[in-house]
Design a protein around this nucleic acid. Structure first.
Lengths: 237, 237
DNA sequence: GTATGTTTTGAACACATGTTTTAATAAATA
DNA sequence: TATTTATTAAAACATGTGTTCAAAACATAC
């Protein structure tokens, strides 16, 4: 009665999560109906409520498995790739992993997660998760976004010689993260315009230019960060 | 029959647009119901269809008047404030106007427009406007966003000595724009967390720190842009 | 005051959506 | 095999939504 199938390897359960992830990443939570999801997963409409209690329960599960499978692994990759290198190279590694996940649709999990974040950022789900007093967005933010951002802050802090929670550091980190998100967003946006708008086209931001994007954001950011670091001694309080 | 009340100063019509603007800017087009809008505007449910044919027609009108009233005026302000100044100061003026509009909720029109852009960016309205073959997002993008971005490209082009449609220029412009959007977004996002998350709080990005944000983005970006400009001669093709 | 055109109103319609229910089917267990 | 449990299936329910319609209220001009 009060219990239902849990996190085991129930087959249709997994298919539902996968279908929901794909569809919700593309259109957002609210714009996808349970019926669509079930159709794609080859399951009955009632399956969602059977396995997840509600649509929101499914959504929570989508986030949960996506965070577990991707975020932490991506985070690990970032740390791994930067290990032993200079702060500059660490930053480059961070930007690389970030941009590759966001821009490159081949890496589906990271790409989907990026899209989900985008949706949830502009129209957060306000309903609290059942049994908890926290919303999905709060959960996702604290478990998925914040850790990454804090790592970036530490990294930037090293570069400019400030604590990680200093305003300067945070602003710089936001500047860097903002660029990554912008490039990912630009790519998605320009998709809707074929073949290109006013001379500059979709291709500038598409996957084939990932390396170039990485190089640009890195150089741009390193210069910005250094300028802020230098400011410290030039500017009077 | 085929005609209906047009752009005149019909009172309730104006009230509907205003209410719709406010609500849609806050929650997005889809999450606001006609009934909510009419309630806020003190009008009957049928009023929307009477004046705008459909909900989408109202939405289009919201964009139209917002773009006319704000975008062009903001754009004019940008050009005005930078007139006769150095490219550096022009950039500072651009960032100032941009950030003030996005972050400062006092300037409602600009703020609302920023929110609408955010919503429409992550979940674009796909239905074409009646009578046109273009979507709202296409219209808004070309009339509202692109002109501003192109101006920014020209400005950056001057700074780094490249054409406005050069890849380098566009990347730099995107880096700058991305920062502005990030700071606006961060402020909105952190609103949902009280009073602050993991040590760095909402206040870092709130209106009271606008001047600081402007200064940061400007210095960070100028340094970044200069680095890219210098690259030009260092890097071999 | 009557007539005409405009605006407002309240109810109804049509439809999509999340959810629940009840029965049928498959799987597991005794 | 008999019985219980887990899963699937189809239909129905409840609700919210965009939209339409016909009548009423209002304003204006003759």
């Amino acid at each position: 009665m009060d219990t239902f199938p849990s996190n085991n390897d129930h087959e249709t359960r997994q298919r539902l999560i996968l279908a929901a992830t794909r569809l919700m990443a593309e259109h957002g939570f609210r714009r996808v109906s349970i019926r669509e999801i079930c159709k794609e997963a080859g399951a009955n409409v009632a399956a969602v409520n059977y396995y997840f209690r509600s649509k929101l329960g499914l959504y929570a599960e989508v986030w949960k498995s996506l965070i577990e499978a991707t975020m932490e692994q991506t985070h690990a990759t970032v740390v791994e790739e930067g290990k032993g290198k200079s702060p500059e190279e660490k930053l480059r590694a961070y930007i690389r992993v970030q941009l590759q996940a966001l821009v490159n649709e081949g890496d589906q999990r990271g790409f989907w997660l990026g899209r989900l974040v985008a949706h949830e950022t502009s129209e957060p789900t306000l309903e609290p998760i059942e049994g908890s007093d926290r919303t999905i967005w709060q959960m996702a933010f604290e478990r998925g976004i914040l850790p990454k951002f804090l790592y970036l802050c530490e990294l930037v802090g090293e570069l400019i010689g400030c604590p990680a929670n200093d305003a300067k550091t945070i602003y710089c980190a936001a500047s860097i993260q903002g660029q990554c998100l912008m490039f990912a967003q630009a790519k998605e946006t320009l998709k809707h315009f074929n073949p290109n708008v006013a001379g500059f086209g979709y291709s500038f931001f598409s996957a084939e230019n990932t390396e170039r994007l990485i190089a640009h954001v890195t150089e741009f950011s390193l210069a910005g960060v250094r300028a802020v670091a230098a400011q410290q001694v030039e500017i009077h309080s």
